[in-house]
Design a protein around this nucleic acid. Structure first.
Lengths: 216, 216, 216, 216
DNA sequence: AATGAATGAGGCTTCATTCAT
DNA sequence: TATGAATGAAGCCTCATTCAT
């Protein structure tokens, strides 16, 4: 009866270690110790530390993007509904793949090697998806964006991605509730009285798209 | 003719290097090379690499917090106005102290040594300030939060802090305009028609505060 | 239908790999991959990497020495003829057992473990054979050595062994022709006019044998 | 009074270690131990082990090539005389820079990294020089080559380079004498009676140049 | 005969830090 | 202030070898 490969264990250990110490500070020593093997033995499973990072992040990230793409393509529901679903999906990813999401976000814009061009690619993909959803809403009149769609997308994404610093899963129901609260915040804003308020649109929003040479 | 101490130069070099490579990957070699000196010479100015990080971040961070505190204490203007000012301040910090802000955010929740307890402290301080501003708005009826104030604060902060990944300064006027667009987004949300919409508050927001043991 | 042992395949793979990367840089991984098996499986055939080296080299080397010994013992032809045959044999070895010869020569004087005392032994054996052939020629008057026989032998051997760096087999006939050209060079030298020339023997050759502690 | 840099010491230690164990088996540990420093300290002098190899070999190799080039250009003496000088130069290099020469020869045709393209380049350079000298001799009628000039050059070079395996320096005078004996051998061959002998040119030397794809 | 996993030793390299000058 | 050299610790990775299955 062949022992099952311990690859999944390894990836999980790596995820935990990356998330706890950060990729750069995490050591193969620490990761392998979690499996009770020596650091050299890790190379029976992967060819490098980087590959381990990829293994941690790739699955969940691809899955997330696939879901987001499906959402975009589904024109059977309105933009607001789909935005709500987007937030729910994102929260679920945090809940289910916490280390992966955390590690991924820690590395965004930090791709130093060709192997991680993939990271930035996924990042652009996600941004484009959200932007396109918001733009669609603006086109249909369902949304009214106070900024360039790209900036609005970045604001939404920032709000969601920052959850890495404070979110703790509490079970599917509570997490979905949290997601919907965030959606309400995004859609309705904070102002009392239905958002009609002098301040809200006081500045004639000179449309503005971020520079190509954005940092990071 | 005695040369003046090159400490400021050093701090700037360190900021640039930290921001480009991340604190962990930045080397004293690289930093000192920017001044045309050798890495050992850095110890004429600071006692450790960590101290350099502190030197980079401390000034701007303290200044930011002081401004934020002043804002909180100033009851002469409404919450929305003060929130707008908060966003403007934050954007200005990014514009004027980009490396510091970037590096600071990269290190949030990553305090490994006692020297950096200060980091987490500042983080909590900032969060508390924003939360208290929002709570005040809810109390006065100026705001209507779809979530727990702490979560709303975290959403706002996330939106702002994520700017590290995309913001590029364009001059005071344009930057202020951008800040105000973001404020509009925060206050008014994305939904057309004044935020009165079935979806916006569809989920009875079970108030919810994040766990004490939040990760990171 | 039982597969035959793949030992010969293994030895060939090892020879190729040793020759391509050098013994030290060659890996069992690379060798075994040529058979489509894993490196651990190699130990079903040999007990160590060194043994593999031995297996690669031993056969051809012993065969070469046997031929050379036979040549020495055969007093039915003159020294020059036998020298020509020696060169032909050597060239044939390069043609037929290229990796073995290459690897062998790469290891000359590099015996680090007892298992390879055999290498140095064979080396001495070969040198002694050539030296004795040349000395015989000098004794019979067929040759006229401008140097100590041992040095002449080393010169001849050097010329031949260096072929590892440039020889490529072209078929029996062409290879034999090349061998005979080299023989002509060894016997007749490069000078025009029958070798009678002031320079040729200008230096009264103080007989000289190499030191026992010769390096390598 | 500044301590002199120990770089020369380091290069010498590296040369000795490379020559004793071979480049691949030599360790920075062993090299640095000869200076009484730790292995990491070596990186104050060079950026890599390879650079150390380069440092060991480069100087003597360039010097040798420069001398050889000068020899080629000097048309004031005959080819035979210049060939004798070539041999003397080569022997002197072995005497004066033994480890460098040894290590160099051990690496010929083994350039794996771009940094060592230089090695193969020097190798080609040397071969071309000798070949051109021999060809000149054939043209002027001073020499009579039984083979293609390139092959004759390789034969001569082989004879000389193989000295790495047996040569031990004995002082300038004795070394020069040895060089001249070898020259006599090259020019006059081994055959008694002035090289006029049936065997010497018995094989009609079908001119033959080595394949471009020569191994190693 | 072959696999998959593990070991253990060692190698190269990096880097913050120290210190005499 | 700055240098040059050294330390020491640690990290990633390689690889021959072992062994249960």
């Amino acid at each position: 009866m062949p022992r099952p490969s311990r690859f999944p264990e390894l990836v999980e250990a790596a995820g935990a270690e990356f998330r706890e110490h950060g990729y750069d500070n995490a050591t193969l020593e620490g990761i392998s110790a979690r499996l009770g093997i020596l650091k050299g033995s890790v190379y029976n499973y992967v060819a490098s530390k980087e590959e381990l990072l990829l293994a941690v992040v790739e699955g969940p990230a691809e899955a997330l993007l696939a879901q987001v793409d499906a959402l975009l393509a589904d024109s059977s529901s309105g933009v607001a509904v789909r935005l709500r679903e987007l937030v729910r999906i994102q929260v679920r990813v945090f809940a289910d793949h916490y280390p992966a999401a955390f590690v991924y976000l820690q590395r965004v814009g930090r791709a130093r090697t060709p192997a991680f061009a993939r990271f930035d690619e996924m990042d652009r993909h996600y941004l484009a998806a959200v932007e396109s959803l918001l733009a669609e809403g603006a086109r249909t009149g369902e949304l009214s964006l106070p900024t360039d769609p790209r900036i609005a997308a970045r604001a939404v994404i920032g709000m969601l991605d920052w959850m890495q610093h404070w979110f703790t899963p509490r079970g599917a129901a509570e997490d979905a509730a949290l997601a919907d609260e965030l959606t309400a915040l995004i859609l309705g804003g904070l102002l009392a009285g239905g958002g009609v308020h002098g301040l809200t649109r006081s500045v004639p929003a000179a449309p503005r798209s971020p520079g190509a040479g954005a940092p990071g």
